[in-house]
Amino acid sequence: MPLNIVSLVSVGRHPQSGRSRRAEQDGRAVEMGLKLAGQQLSVVHVGNPDEPVLRQYAGMGLSSLTVLKQADRFDAVPVLQRYLEQKNIDIVLTGVRSESGESSGMVPYLLAHALGWPVVARVADIVCVEKGEAQVLLALPRGQRRAVRVALPFIASLDLAAPPARQSAFGVGLRAKIETIESIGEVDQIRVDWQEAEAKPRAKRLKTVKAKTAAERFKAATAKPQGDAGKVLINETTQQKAQAIFDLLLEEKVIR
């Protein structure tokens, strides 16, 4: 049975020019979707159907693209939730965070919360899907991977370690059909209240070179962090495990 996969795409922003572009991670979400579902992939955007950047996504080989039309001041999550609930979806692919707008990285979590699905964050690859279960590789720092198995349906956010998006072909993008669905949104009050300002470049931290030799520099760049504070709890009771996490959060001042 072909997989029912949806890739969510947003309007990216080029870091040098500030111009709209195909977002790096969302492009990877489409690429992964094309790998898993081929032409059956559906790609969804919330916003303006006349946005030219959508053609750049479509140029990756999509015959059509769905736009849930709503103005910028509306929240993307409720419409997406309603749209996704109607369909019998196996996997939703997104980027980790958008390059424009609030860029909070919350969309996959809020959606998962609303739909009651698990989130698999920072995916490097979805190896295969068999018997309602997907084998997923998560991206960890320094090129490390963690293999996990996830039951369908789930939401996956694509890390930059995932295969990069293929080239966008102008002609294909131009001919793709953009299907617009009018949607009734909810005003995103938090977003509306925000003020946007140019970011000031952060002062650079002085880099003190401790390594004396090339071997030391290489080690510093590749070695695993030598954290010995970690604890592995397997045989303990759930109570003890939870307590350990709680203590750590207190210690790290995540909760006070």
């Binding site: 140029g59 990756m60 080989g61 293929r166 080239q167 966008s168 072909a169 102008f170 002609g171 294909v172």
Partner: peptide, 8 residues
Amino acid sequence: VTMEKGQT
């Protein structure tokens, strides 16, 4: 090749 196949 570039504008239709996207294979530069």
